[in-house]
Nucleic acid binder design. Structure first.
Length: 244
DNA sequence: AAACGGGGTTTGCGCGAGGT
DNA sequence: ACCTCGCGCAAACCCCGTTT
């Protein structure tokens, strides 16, 4: 069917999204527009298409966010949404480290370092399989497989008799700011998230332009240190308040 | 219209693979 | 054969978009 390359698709999508209102546009509409332009059906490549759309949107939103925060927030959140992996070690040339790593990966006791790569891997994987699609349906299959497995496990949930509870549910001591907000001095992470969600709802702190974002009131601002944040990623901002 | 899945973030554990 | 490293998956939160 469509002999259009992913790159061409991306280009078209970028063109469409460039003029579109991200708050109202949907992947479906984008697809329809691109289909109109290219005069062919992209239904069979829907997944791939959606993925590219999401990527392009994310790119654009990231740019917007950066502008936004820079503009509004003088002490703008250093890491913000844009770059999770800017943790470069300034002291050691990365090249060298990489080389060493390749040669003798063992003797480098820097456990904290894999955090970023780890995450990156994860996202890359998803992107990977989606964008690549070179291997054909095979890789596609894998992509589907993973979430499915995840869901399956999720559904099976606690039934797993031998399932250990990991660090997810353990209670953390909270920083003074956060404990003031929560009314508790120690809570598990998910409880904190739950309460923050409750606060957002209760005080109606949703960003009217995009409900995936919340705008902090003064109290919340003390904790989040940022005026507007993406609610899905709130843990990133809460992290410093978990003192262990 | 209702239901479902994806999305992002966190830390810790377990397993597999590779090197010595 | 043992040790170390790296990667993937686990639970929890809820909104939004897509599909049926």
């Amino acid at each position: 069917m469509s002999d259009i390359s992913s790159e061409d698709l991306r280009r078209e999508i970028q063109a469409v999204l460039k003029d579109a209102d991200l708050a109202t546009i949907s992947a479906k509409r984008v697809r329809e527009q691109v289909e109109g332009k290219l005069n062919c059906s992209l239904l069979s490549r829907k997944k791939e298409f959606d993925k590219i759309v999401m990527e392009v949107i994310n790119e654009q939103q990231d740019e917007e966010d950066e502008d936004d925060d820079e503009g509004k927030d003088p002490d703008a959140d250093p890491d913000d949404e844009s770059e999770p992996s800017e943790e470069e070690d300034p002291s050691s040339s990365e090249e060298e480290a990489a080389k060493k790593k390749k040669q003798s990966p063992k003797k480098r006791p820097q456990p904290t370092k894999h955090k970023a790569p780890k995450k990156k891997r994860k996202t890359l994987n998803a992107d990977d399989s989606g964008t690549e699609s070179d291997a054909g349906s095979d890789s596609d299959y894998e992509v589907v497989k993973k979430p499915a497995a995840k869901k399956k496990a999720k559904a099976a949930g606690g039934t797993g008799s031998g399932r250990k509870s990991t660090g997810f549910t353990r209670a953390y001591n909270l920083s003074p700011e956060l404990s003031a907000l929560m009314g508790e001095s120690s809570l598990p992470r998910h409880e904190v998230v739950k309460k923050v969600w409750a606060i957002i709802k209760e005080r109606d702190l949703y960003d009217p332009k995009n409900k995936q974002f919340a705008i902090c009131d003064d109290e919340l601002m003390k904790v989040m240190k940022i005026r507007r944040f993406r609610t899905f990623g709130m843990l990133k901002h809460l992290k410093p308040h978990f003192l262990d």
